[in-house]
């Protein structure tokens, strides 16, 4: 058995194997390689077996392929030959559909000796333009951060640039969540655009921007201004739109 937990937000997966062949990773450049997890005996083979997991990075665009031994094992052949046949066939694969079709065509025998199963997963790259909608609750903040982290990293933002923009964006989101409206089931929208080094992020809600109250509140707007190049708060009949821009590659 092989068990894999994929975390697209952090671009990692955690893997544990119990007497299973190694997953195949096809990176965005098309290069295919096996990931050998810490060895573990098959489930049920030993009463007190211990299993260790391994965490691997999986950059956007990478394909992960899990398969049973029926796909690679042939009689009168060492397993390494079967694995290499799979690796070479999978190299260059960009789409999971075409990869799976090619595996069925070339590696699944007409009358298999063993059962054959495989799963191909790809973390798709995020487009230059993002349009997303979120529930107006604090629980939305973390997933928004993880999404923006991936999106900004793919656009070449440094860690500090990404961090500053994410904090600034989250301040706008926090305002939409905290002040925008009373009733439950409210939503707000977050759009992000990238054009030739310029990042524009807009947070739109359907409520009114409310001046924060209390001595230790109201750091949101000054923080946005300190962390992003431009901050524009626009009040309309329909709600509030906060637009942040930042040119990547300019020292803070």
């Amino acid at each position: 058995m092989v068990y894999l937990v994929l975390d697209p937000a952090m671009e990692t997966f955690e893997l544990v194997a119990a007497g299973h062949l190694p997953p195949l990773l096809i990176d965005p450049s098309g290069e295919a390689r096996f990931v050998w997890p810490p060895p573990g005996v098959p489930l049920g083979a030993l009463p007190n077996a211990m299993y260790r997991s391994q965490t691997c990075p999986i950059p956007t665009g990478t394909v992960v392929l899990l398969y049973t031994d029926g796909l690679v094992e042939r009689r009168r052949e060492v397993i390494d030959d079967g694995l290499e046949r799979l690796r070479v066939l999978a190299e260059g694969a960009e789409h999971v559909e075409t990869l799976c079709a090619s595996l069925v065509e070339h590696l699944v025998p007409e009358a298999p000796d063993d059962d054959v199963a495989f799963i191909a997963v790809r973390v798709p790259p995020l487009p230059d333009q993002l349009a997303t909608r979120w529930r107006a609750t604090p629980d939305s903040l973390a997933p928004i951060r993880y999404l923006l982290r991936r999106w900004l990293a793919a656009r070449g933002a440094t860690e500090q640039e990404a961090y500053d923009l994410i904090v600034a964006t989250q301040e706008a989101c926090a305002n939409a969540i905290e002040h925008a409206y009373g009733p439950a089931r409210a939503h707000f929208e977050l759009a992000a655009g990238y054009d030739d080094g310029l990042v524009t992020i807009t947070v739109t809600d359907t409520g009114r921007w409310r001046a924060p109250r209390g001595e230790n509140r109201g750091r949101g707007l000054p923080m946005m201004r300190a962390l992003a190049e431009t901050v524009d708060v626009r009040q309309t009949d329909g709600g509030t739109a906060v637009t942040l821009t930042q040119r990547l590659g300019t020292p803070a």
Partner: peptide, 16 residues
């Protein structure tokens, strides 16, 4: 690894 103005407000309140 991450903190925002909610955390900053907490630090100011605690300090006071």
């Amino acid at each position: 690894t991450y903190l925002d103005s909610a955390a900053v407000a907490l630090l100011f309140e605690l300090a006071a």
